[in-house]
Design a protein around this nucleic acid. Structure first.
Length: 416
DNA sequence: CGTCGACCTCC
DNA sequence: GAGGTCGAC
C-alpha cells in the first residue's frame, strides 16, 4: 500500500528546490486560509493536490523538498490518468529501507528526466518563487513598524498562485465560516464530485471538480446533503452561469484583465461579494494589490493602524471595503495584497503561539528604544502615506489615519 | 448609502 | 455568532 512519503525515510526519491526558509514557510503559507487542500501528514510534511498531482512537501533550511506520487498501487477506479506511471512503485520501495537503494537511484533518475522539469515548474509557479519575498518584506517594513515587528516572526508568508476554479468555489464556501469547516467542506466537495487521483494510507486524494460537474442540476441537493447549507445553490448556480454566459476558461482569462474589471466580473456570480471576489483576484488571478477585507482585516486596520473608516458602523459596507483596501494599498503599495496576508496570518488563533514571540520582541524593542521612537514611527508612516497620496494625486483627506501606531495593544484572543 | 433579516450548520 | 451575500427598505 502506498504510504505518505517522509524525507527521513527515502530522501533519494525526493527532489529538491533551492529555497531559503525566509522565502517560504510551508506551515504559514499552506495554513493561513488561502488554500484548503493541504494537510500535515507527517512532522513538517504537507500533502495535498495541486496541478492534478498529489504532492508531499517539506523543507530544510535552504531547500524545499517535493515528492510527487504516482498512481501505482492505487486501489481506486480505473479512471486515473496514466501520467507518471513510469515512476511506479518507487514510493513503496523507498519507504522500505536501504536494501535496494542503488537500483532506486537509477530508477529515480530516469523518472526525473521525464517529469522533473514539468513538476518543478509547476511548483515554482504555484509558490510564485520568482517573486523575492525578502525584498518585499523590506519594502513593506520600511515605513510600517507594526508590519516589521510582526514580520520578524511571520517570515515566508507568500501568496499562492492557485487554480481560479478551485479558488472561486472554495471561497464561495467561506461565507459565515471558519477555516476548519471550510477545509471539511472542500474535502467533501472533492471527494464527492472530483476525480480520484490515488489513495495513500486509506486517504483518497481527489482533484477539484470541474465546472461541468459543478454546474449539474443535481449538485445543489447533493451539496446540501453534505452540509453546505445555502452555499450549495451558490456553487451550482455560479458554475452554471459561467458555462452558460461565458466559457469554461473565462475565469482563467480574467488573469489578463485589470483588477477592477476582474473583481466586478466575479461579483456577477451568485454568492460572490466584494470579499470573495478580492480573494479570488489575489489568490488566483494575479491581482497583487487586491486586499480582501473581512471583519478581521477591518479590526487590524482599526486596532493596529488607527484607521477610522467605518467607525460607528455595524457592518462592512462597500464603502468601508473600498476605504480599508485603499488604506492598505497606500501604505504598502502594489503588493498590498501580499503584505495583508502576513498580518492576516499573524492574527489567526492557531498561530498565536508564534505571535507571542513577536509581542516579546516588540516589548523589548519598545523598552530599549523608548517612546521617542514610537512617535517618530507614526510620523514616518504618515510621511509615507502622504508621499503615496502625492504620487497618486490624491488628497490626504482620503486617509483615515487617526491615532498613532499603538505599541501596547493586546494580543488578539479570538478568531480562527 | 447604510441597516436589517434571512440563509445553513457547527461550536 | 461565525473570515459573507442578497434583497428589501
Amino acid at each position: 500500500m502506498l504510504q505518505h512519503a517522509l524525507l527521513s525515510v527515502g530522501c533519494k526519491a525526493w527532489r529538491a528546490l533551492s529555497c531559503p526558509i525566509s522565502e517560504l514557510r510551508l506551515d504559514l503559507t499552506l495554513g493561513c486560509g488561502q488554500t484548503f487542500r493541504w494537510r500535515e501528514t507527517g512532522d513538517g510534511h504537507w500533502t495535498g493536490v495541486m496541478g492534478g498531482r498529489v504532492w508531499t512537501l517539506t523543507q530544510t533550511d535552504d531547500t524545499l523538498w517535493y515528492y510527487v506520487y504516482t498512481n501505482q498501487n492505487n486501489h481506486g477506479t480505473g479512471s486515473v490518468s496514466e501520467m507518471g506511471s513510469s515512476a511506479e512503485s518507487v514510493p513503496d520501495k523507498r519507504l522500505k529501507g536501504v536494501g535496494s537503494m542503488k537500483q532506486e537511484d537509477e530508477e529515480g533518475l530516469k523518472v526525473t528526466s521525464v517529469h522533473d522539469s514539468t513538476e518543478q515548474e509547476l511548483l515554482k509557479d504555484y509558490f510564485q518563487l520568482n517573486i523575492q519575498l525578502e525584498n518585499l518584506y523590506k519594502d513593506w517594513g520600511a515605513c510600517d513598524d507594526h508590519f516589521r515587528h510582526i514580520a520578524s516572526i511571520f517570515t515566508g508568508v507568500r501568496m499562492l498562485k492557485q487554480d481560479p476554479v478551485e479558488c472561486l468555489f472554495s471561497f464561495i464556501c467561506s461565507s459565515n465560516n471558519h477555516i476548519s469547516r471550510i477545509q471539511g467542506m472542500v474535502e467533501r466537495l472533492c471527494h464527492t464530485l472530483g476525480p480520484r487521483l490515488l489513495t495513500i494510507e486509506d486517504t483518497h486524494y481527489h482533484d477539484f471538480p470541474t465546472l461541468q460537474v459543478l454546474a449539474d442540476n443535481g449538485v445543489e441537493a447533493c451539496l446540501r446533503d453534505l452540509g453546505f447549507g445555502y452555499r450549495a445553490r451558490f456553487l451550482q448556480q455560479s458554475a452554471r452561469l459561467i458555462l452558460d454566459k461565458h466559457s469554461p476558461d473565462w475565469l482563467h482569462q480574467l488573469r489578463g484583465a485589470p483588477y477592477e474589471e476582474a473583481r466586478e466580473a466575479l461579483r456577477t456570480l451568485p454568492g460572490v461579494g466584494v470579499k470573495v471576489a478580492d480573494c479570488v483576484c489575489l489568490m488566483s488571478l494575479d491581482k497583487l494589490d487586491a486586499v480582501p477585507v473581512d471583519t478581521h482585516v477591518w479590526q487590524i486596520a482599526k486596532r493596529d493602524y488607527g484607521c477610522s473608516s467605518g467607525n460607528g458602523q455595524k457592518t462592512l459596507t462597500d464603502k468601508v471595503h473600498r476605504e480599508i483596501g485603499d488604506f492598505f494599498r497606500q501604505l504598502w503599495g502594489p503588493y498590498a495584497g501580499w503584505a495583508h496576508s502576513v498580518l492576516f496570518c499573524a492574527d489567526l488563533k492557531k498561530f498565536q503561539k508564534l505571535k507571542e514571540r513577536a509581542a516579546g520582541v516588540k516589548a523589548e524593542w519598545v523598552k530599549s528604544e523608548g517612546d521617542q521612537k514610537g512617535k517618530s514611527n507614526s510620523k514616518k508612516q504618515k510621511d509615507r502615506l502622504s508621499e503615496r497620496n502625492d504620487a497618486k494625486g490624491k488628497t490626504a483627506k482620503k486617509m483615515k489615519l487617526e491615532k498613532p501606531f499603538s505599541r501596547n495593544r493586546t494580543v488578539k484572543e479570538e478568531g480562527e
